[in-house]
Amino acid sequence: MTAALSAPDLAARLEKEFPGAIVESNADSLVVDSVKLPDIASFLKNTPELDFDYLTNLTAVDYKEHFELVYHLLSISRNHSLTLKTRCYDRENPTVPSLVALWNAADLQEREVYDLFGIVFSGHPNMKRIFLWEGFPGYPLRKDFGDGV
């Protein structure tokens, strides 16, 4: 079975490398500052004993006062996994750095999150809708979509 890495242990280690970047860490996830996300992600990928070479899933959650981005990371060589999260508080122009350069799997999934939540991933080579058509009004997975209809 794939072992889930203990987020608090990892957080202590990351805190040394990236002071102030860890927002929260609990038993099942590690929440980081979105500005530092690309650096932390690349550290997780390129550090040999962590070696997160596989992004299995990327999604978002709308908590009304903020969006939360969820990245499920897996290391095939080390057989361990991690749930990495980041938050975005801007509802008008939500922007999060793209991770396509690190994991190709992020390409289509970031477009899906953009399509359904309207979160823009800066640095994505082709940020456009994927399922819905161009000109679709609004972002349907936002909690306020269709309010008053």
């Binding site: 456009k128 058509w133 161009e134 000109g135 679709f136």
Partner: peptide, 10 residues
């Protein structure tokens, strides 16, 4: 092409 398709659908 995407935006043309979008217009057709709308």
């Amino acid at each position: 092409l995407d935006s043309e398709e979008g217009q057709v659908i709308e």
